[in-house]
Deep mutational scan, measured.
Amino acid sequence: MKVIFLKDVKGKGKKGEIKNVADGYANNFLFKQGLAIEATPANLKALE
């Protein structure tokens, strides 16, 4: 799953980066902790 990092995550990505991560990692950790959002077309456009 492609995500946009909202904060730096050690060993995974930095704020503003768009990366592929495992679905479970994104859903169970990144999204719940507010560290990333899904890289949907709307979210990508808002990032610009």
Rank of each mutant, 00 (worst) to 15 (best):
K32F: 08
V3S: 00
G11E: 05
V3T: 00
D23Q: 15
N28C: 09
V3W: 01
L6C: 08
N43R: 05
F5V: 00
Y25D: 04
L44F: 06
K2A: 12
K2L: 15
I37Q: 06
T40M: 02
A26P: 04
L6K: 03
G16N: 07
K45F: 08
M1C: 08
I37L: 05
N20M: 14
K7A: 12
G24N: 14
F31V: 08
A46P: 07
G16R: 04
D23F: 15
K15P: 05
G11Y: 07
L44Q: 07
I18M: 07
N43Y: 07
I18T: 06
K32E: 11
A26D: 07
P41L: 12
V3I: 08
E48V: 14
G34V: 04
P41M: 10
N20H: 14
A36N: 00
N20Q: 13
K14A: 09
E38S: 08
T40N: 08
N28A: 12
F5P: 01
K15G: 03
M1L: 13
F29V: 15
E38C: 06
G11V: 01
K12N: 10
E48W: 09
K12W: 15
L6G: 00
A26F: 14
V21L: 05
A42H: 10
E17H: 04
K32N: 10
F29P: 03
D8C: 05
E17G: 02
A22W: 09
A22L: 09
A26E: 07
N43C: 05
L6D: 01
G34T: 04
A39N: 01
G11M: 05
K32H: 09
P41R: 09
A22P: 15
G16H: 07
D23E: 15
P41H: 11
G11I: 01
I37C: 08
A39W: 10
L47R: 05
K45A: 10
K7E: 11
K7L: 11
G34M: 05
K10Y: 14
G24F: 14
D23K: 15
F5M: 04
K15A: 12
A36L: 01
N28T: 10
D23W: 15
A36C: 03
V3H: 00
G16E: 01
K45R: 08
Y25S: 05
G16I: 00
A42T: 10
L30C: 03
K45S: 12
K2D: 10
G16F: 09
A39C: 08
K19F: 07
K32V: 14
L44P: 01
A42M: 09
K12Y: 14
L35G: 00
P41K: 11
E48D: 11
V3L: 03
D23H: 14
G16A: 04
E38F: 05
E48L: 14
F31K: 06
V3R: 00
K2R: 14
L44D: 04
N20I: 15
D8N: 09
K14P: 01
A26S: 03
G16D: 07
L30A: 02
L44N: 04
K45G: 09
F29L: 07
N27C: 11
P41Q: 11
E38T: 06
K19M: 12
G11P: 03
K10C: 11
K7S: 11
A39F: 10
A26T: 04
I4H: 02
K15S: 07
G11R: 05
I18C: 07
A36M: 03
L47F: 14
N27E: 14
L35E: 03
A36K: 00
N28K: 11
G13A: 09
E38M: 10
A26Q: 05
N27R: 15
P41Y: 10
G16C: 07
E17F: 02
K14F: 13
K14D: 06
K2F: 14
V3M: 02
K19S: 08
F5T: 00
F31L: 12
I37D: 01
L6R: 01
L44C: 08
A22Q: 13
F5I: 02
N27Q: 13
V3P: 00
E17I: 02
V9Y: 04
N28L: 11
L6Q: 03
E48G: 12
K12L: 15
E38I: 11
A22M: 10
A46I: 12
F29T: 08
K2I: 13
G24R: 14
G11S: 06
L35Q: 03
I18Q: 06
K10G: 08
N20S: 13
K19T: 08
G24T: 15
E17P: 00
Y25W: 09
A42V: 09
V21P: 00
F29I: 13
D23Y: 14
K12Q: 15
L30W: 05
K2C: 13
V9L: 06
K19W: 07
K32C: 09
A26L: 07
G34P: 00
K32T: 13
I37G: 00
V21H: 02
K7C: 10
A26C: 03
K19G: 08
N20A: 14
F31D: 03
V21Q: 01
N43L: 10
L44W: 03
P41T: 10
K12S: 13
K19C: 07
F31A: 03
A46F: 12
N27S: 13
L47E: 05
A26N: 06
I4E: 01
F31S: 00
F31C: 04
L30T: 01
K19Y: 08
I4P: 01
E38D: 04
D23S: 15
G13C: 06
A46W: 15
V3Y: 00
N28M: 10
I37A: 07
Q33M: 15
K32Y: 07
G34L: 07
N28E: 14
I18P: 01
V9A: 03
I18L: 07
F29K: 06
Q33H: 15
A42W: 06
N20P: 08
F5W: 02
N28F: 10
G16P: 00
F29D: 06
L47V: 09
K15Q: 11
D8R: 06
D8H: 08
F5S: 00
A42G: 11
K10W: 13
K14Q: 09
N20G: 08
I4Q: 03
K10F: 14
N27K: 15
K7N: 10
N28D: 14
K45Y: 11
D23M: 15
L44T: 06
K10H: 13
K12G: 13
E38Q: 09
V21A: 02
G34Y: 08
F5Y: 07
G34K: 10
M1G: 03
V21W: 02
Y25I: 07
V9Q: 02
F29E: 08
A39T: 02
A46Q: 12
K14S: 11
A26V: 05
E17N: 04
K15R: 12
N43V: 11
K10T: 10
V3G: 00
V3K: 00
N43K: 05
K2Y: 14
G13S: 04
V9F: 04
N43M: 08
N20Y: 15
G34F: 09
